[in-house]
Amino acid sequence: MLLTLNHIGLRYNQNRAVLQNISFSLAPGSFHFLTGPSGAGKSSLLRIIYLAEKPSEGNINLFGHDIAKMARHELPALRRQIGVIFQDFRLIPHLSALENAALPLRLAGAREDYIQRHTSELLDWVGLGDRLHALPSSLSGGEQQRAAIARAIVNKPKLLLADEPTGNVDEESAMRLTHLFNELNKMGTAIVLATHQQDLIQRLNKPSLWLKEGRLIAPFPPSAKAA
């Protein structure tokens, strides 16, 4: 399995539990929606998967490694195999689209000529071939999201996590992004796409992980939950 979560729980200080007893597995090349109402814990669960948060309970097995047994300095190597797309894009404002998208390759120590060539080709593929040197502030919401997707996949990750990727873009951009995710999945990248947009779930017709009040109720047919 690519990812296995066993009885994951998350609680901040003494507050109410954000996540409770979450268990599921993801196979390589799979595609899942992570859905549920606002505040159900979708973003928190994604943060746990991309190792930005330590669970209060349970354990994670990622790419065959038990995360609890790993030292801090070993985690970056695992994180480099995960691509993350944020709802608010998180592009660095004073770096161009090309520089933003190239960051993971620079961290991985890739050669400069490879970085330039590969990142340019990728930005071209996501439709930003003519905006390589544009700063995020001069890009539209859809373009910023595509630059963020390029950054997330530039390292050819095994797992791609997307947190409400179509939440801040128009309908046309959302369609284009959906197509991109499908294409990436066909190339073998496992995808977990967090969204509360039922039309998107119905359009792609992929299995869903339904979260409600921090608990996983899975898998429900999207149409049943929407009703």
Binding site: Y50, A52, R72, P76, A77, R80, I82, R90, L107, R151
Partner: peptide
């Protein structure tokens, strides 16, 4: 904070 979290997410080490 957001930039640091982003760098960690994309695989930056503390040393980086």
């Amino acid at each position: 904070k957001d930039t640091i979290e982003l760098l960690h997410t994309i695989g930056a080490t503390d040393n980086d």
